[in-house]
Design a protein around this nucleic acid. Structure first.
Length: 648
RNA sequence: GCCCCUAUAGCUCAACUGGAUAGAGCACCCGCCUUCUAAGCGGACGGUUUCAGGUUCGAGUCCUGAUGGGGGUACCA
C-alpha cells in the first residue's frame, strides 16, 4: 500500500523520496509504471551506498541484462535527484549513494519536526485487549510478556496514526474464584491482606493453592476406599506414594516396572472419578450456582476477595508501567452471546442437536465442530467471546480489534473469527489474534503444581535490586538511597526485563534465562539507556559552554564522518520501522532498531570528538545530530514502554 | 489419530517478507580509559540455516516429504 508523500517533508522520508525517483526513472526509460512495487533495501555494509534497487525482477520489462539496466537507471536517477551523490552497480544491484550535504539537510528536517517518526492520524481505530487476568492468583512471568506486548503494541499503533483503545477483560467469575473463596471460607479465619501483611492477589492465590491441597487429599482419601475393587491397585499400600514414584521416574526418564505400568490405567480412571467425587469440588460448584443466583453472602464474599485482588493488581500494573482505557468484567459479559446463538441458528450458521446443544459446523473451514451452547442452555467461553466482540464494536466501532493472548488459544480465536464472519459481522475482518509463545525457563515449562512459576512482583523487585547492586559496583551514584536513585534502579531493572521479553518475535516461544535477563551489557535495555544518558551528558556540557547547535550554524556543512552517515541512514529509517512494527504487530522490530541505533552511535562516539571539535559548523552538526539520536532512542524506548534516564 | 506453530554459531536471538560473502549479544581469547560516562569501542574465534527433494536468474525465507521440540483437539476457561 503506497503511503502518501508530502513534498514539503520530502527529506523526512528519504526512502520514500528515492523510491519515487527510481520509479520515475524506470518509467522514463522503459515506459512502465512500477511505483507500487518498487522496494529499496538497505545496502549491505560491504558496498558503498545507502539504498539498493534490485533490477533482476524487471529484466522481463527492460529486456536488458540486469547490470546494464542498473547502470542506465543509476544515471537517470542521478540526473533527476539532487539527493544522490553517486551510485555503483554490482551485478543487478544498483547502490544509491546519498551525499553528505543531503544528509545534513535530512538532519535539519528531522530537527525541525515536533515528533520525528510519528505518523499523521490515519482516521482508524484499533482496540487492543491485553492482560486479561484471572482473579484467583497473582500475575507471573507469562503475564509479563502479555502485558509488555499489549502495552507496546498499543504505543506503536498510536505512533502509526491509529486511535487506540487499550482494554482489559478481567476474568472475575467462575469456578476458579469459587475455589479460592471456598478455601478462604473454610480455612481463612478472617484473614485480610492487612492482617497477613501480603498483597491481596497473593493472598487469594494462597487460598487457591490451599483449595488444591485439600482437594487432592480428599481425592486420595476416597481412592483408598475404592482401590480394593481394582486388582492392579489393591496391593499398592499408598496410592499417593505410588503416583509420586511414577512421576519421579517419568521426570528422570527411568523405565517403569511392569507392575507400575499395569496399575497406571486403572489408577487414572479412578483418579478421574475421584476428581468428580470429592466434595470440595461439589461445594465449589454449588458456590458458583449460588453466585449466579445472586446469593447475597456469596456475592459479598466475592466482592471482598476480588477487591483485594484488584488492589494487588493495580500495584503490579503500576510497577509494570502499563495502563488501560477501559475494563471489561466477565461477571458483566458472561451471559452475552446467547442472542447471537439464536441469530446463528436462524441464519443456519449453527445447528441444534437432539439434546438441545448448539453447534457450529466449521468442518468446511478445516476447523471441525464447535459447541456454542450447552445442552442445558448455558453458555461456554466461545458464546461469551462472541457476545463480547459485539459489545466491543458497539463501544468503540473499531477498524481493528487485537487480542493479545497466548498461542495455546490459536484454535479458539480461529473459530471465533470464523464464526463472527459467518454471522455477517463486517468488523470481523479487522479482528486479529496477537498470538505469543510461552515463556520457558531453563528448567523447562513453568508449572504451578511444581512451584516453578516465576512471580511477577518478585521478579520485578529482583530486577530493581540487581540494578542497585550493579550501579553501586560501578560507583556511579552519590547517594545510593535517594529517591532519585531508587527511581533510576526501577527504570534500569524494568528496562532490562522489558527489553529482554520484547526483543524476541512475539509469536516465538522464548527462553527466560534469569542470569541473562539481568545482564546490563550488550544487547540489553540498560545498554540503550546508557547511550541515551551519555548523549545527554554531552549535551548538558555543551549547553553550559554555550555551543551552538542550530541549523543556521551547521546547515552549510558538506562533509561528514563515515560513522555519522551510518547513524543518519538508521535515523532516516525510523518512520518505516514504526510502520513495519505496526503492520506486523511486533515490538521486536522497534527493539532491534533502538539497539542498532545505540550501537552505531556508540561507534561514532568512540571515534569522533564532539566538544573538542574546533570547526563551528561541524560541532553544531554533531550536537544537533546527537540530540536527535537521543530523542529517537527515547521515543523508540517509549514505544516499548521503557523509560530512559538523563544520567546513569 | 487429526490440526496449528516451530527448528539459524556452544547458548540466546536477528536477517527489512525471494536478493549480494547469513548478522548481533553472551561465553572464550587479544587490544583500547592524562580527551565529551569503559553499563563503551575495535579485533579474533565460531555456520552444510535439522534432513531429503522441488520451484527460479537467485531459497534461511515458497512447495512436498521426513525427523526433533511445543501447543490444541467437540458441553474447561
Amino acid at each position: 500500500m503506497p503511503r502518501k508523500t508530502q513534498t514539503t517533508d520530502l527529506l523526512m522520508n528519504l526512502e520514500q523520496a528515492l523510491s519515487t525517483a527510481v520509479a520515475e526513472a524506470f518509467e522514463a526509460l522503459y515506459g512502465e509504471n512500477i511505483a507500487d512495487q518498487v522496494a529499496l533495501q538497505p545496502t549491505k555494509k560491504e558496498f558503498a551506498g545507502t539504498y539498493t534497487f534490485v533490477t533482476f525482477p524487471y529484466s522481463r520489462i527492460t529486456k536488458e541484462k540486469p547490470d546494464v539496466a542498473a547502470q542506465r537507471m543509476g544515471e537517470k536517477v542521478q540526473e533527476s535527484s539532487d539527493l544522490l551523490s553517486g551510485f555503483n552497480v554490482v551485478k543487478g544491484f544498483l547502490n544509491l549513494e546519498i551525499g553528505d550535504a543531503a544528509w545534513v539537510k535530512v538532519l535539519a528536517s528531522i530537527a525541525q519536526t515536533e515528533q520525528y517518526g510519528v505518523a499523521e492520524p490515519i482516521g482508524q481505530k484499533v482496540m487492543v485487549e491485553y492482560s486479561s487476568p484471572n482473579t484467583n492468583k497473582p500475575l507471573h512471568l507469562g503475564h509479563l510478556r502479555n502485558n509488555f506486548l499489549g502495552y507496546s503494541v498499543s504505543q506503536i499503533m498510536d505512533a502509526a496514526g491509529y486511535e487506540v483503545k487499550k482494554v482489559n477483560l478481567v476474568n472475575d467469575r467462575g469456578i476458579h474464584i469459587c475455589k479460592s473463596m471456598l478455601a478462604y471460607q473454610k480455612y481463612g479465619e478472617g484473614e485480610t491482606p492487612e492482617s497477613a501483611g501480603i498483597k491481596g492477589d497473593h493472598l487469594i492465590g494462597k487460598y487457591y493453592v490451599e483449595f488444591d491441597k485439600h482437594y487432592k487429599a480428599q481425592q486420595y482419601e476416597w481412592m483408598e476406599t475404592q482401590k480394593a475393587n481394582h486388582p492392579e491397585l489393591a496391593s499398592i499400600e499408598d496410592l499417593r506414594e505410588f503416583k509420586k514414584g511414577v512421576d519421579d521416574k517419568n521426570k528422570t526418564k527411568q523405565p517403569l516396572s511392569d507392575e507400575e505400568r499395569a496399575a497406571m490405567k486403572p489408577f487414572k480412571e479412578l483418579q478421574a472419578q475421584a476428581e468428580k467425587e470429592a466434595t470440595l469440588l461439589k461445594e465449589a460448584q454449588e458456590m458458583l450456582r449460588k453466585w449466579e443466583q445472586g446469593d447475597e453472602d456469596t456475592v459479598v464474599l466475592w466482592k471482598q476477595m476480588n477487591g483485594w485482588v484488584y488492589d494487588g493488581f493495580n500495584a503490579t500494573y503500576n510497577t509494570m508501567g502499563v495502563t488501560f482505557d477501559k475494563f471489561y468484567y466477565e461477571s458483566d459479559t458472561y451471559l452475552l452471546g446467547k442472542d447471537l446463538v439464536e441469530d446463528g441458528l436462524s441464519r443456519e450458521v449453527f445447528y441444534q442437536k437432539d439434546d438441545g446443544s448448539v453447534w457450529a459446523d466449521l468442518s468446511g473451514d478445516n476447523l471441525d465442530q464447535k459447541l456454542v451452547l450447552r445442552s442445558d442452555g448455558t453458555s461456554v467461553y466461545m458464546t461469551q467471546d462472541m457476545g463480547t466482540s459485539d459489545l466491543k464494536f458497539q463501544d468503540f466501532a473499531f477498524n481493528k480489534s487485537i487480542y493479545v493472548v497466548g498461542n495455546e488459544q490459536d484454535y479458539h480465536f480461529q473459530v471465533l473469527f470464523t464464526i463472527m464472519k459467518k454471522l455477517g459481522r463486517e468488523y470481523a475482518d479487522g479482528m486479529y489474534h496477537l498470538s505469543y509463545g510461552m515463556v520457558d525457563l531453563p528448567t523447562g515449562k513453568m508449572k504451578s503444581r511444581e512451584g516453578t512459576v516465576v512471580d511477577a512482583d518478585d521478579l520485578m523487585a529482583e530486577m530493581q535490586q540487581t540494578a542497585k547492586n550493579y550501579t553501586a559496583e560501578k560507583g556511579k551514584i552519590d547517594d545510593p538511597d535517594s529517591e532519585e536513585a531508587q527511581a533510576l534502579y526501577h527504570m534500569l531493572g524494568m528496562a532490562a526485563l522489558k527489553y529482554y521479553l520484547l526483543r524476541v518475535d512475539p509469536k516465538k516461544r522464548m527462553l527466560f534465562n534469569p542470569q541473562e535477563s539481568i545482564e546490563f551489557q550488550g544487547d540489553t535495555g540498560p545498554f540503550i539507556q546508557y547511550t541515551h544518558a551519555r548523549i545527554k551528558s554531552v549535551l548538558r556540557r555543551a549547553e553550559q559552554v554555550g555551543h551552538a547547535k542550530d541549523v543556521a550554524t551547521f546547515g552549510t556543512l558538506t562533509q561528514l564522518h563515515p560513522t555519522e552517515v551510518e547513524v543518519m541512514a538508521l535515523l532516516a529509517r525510523y518512520p518505516d520501522k514504526i510502520q513495519e512494527a505496526a503492520d506486523t504487530y511486533s515490538p521486536s522490530v522497534v527493539a532491534q532498531f533502538a539497539y542498532d541505533l545505540a550501537k552505531e552511535y556508540n561507534r561514532f562516539y568512540q571515534e569522533v570528538p564532539i566538544l573538542n571539535e574546533v570547526d563551528a559548523p561541524t560541532l553544531a552538526f554533531r550536537l544537533a545530530f546527537s540530540e536527535q539520536v537521543a530523542k529517537t532512542i527515547a521515543h523508540a524506548m517509549q514505544l516499548l514502554g521503557i523509560q530512559v534516564p538523563e544520567r546513569m
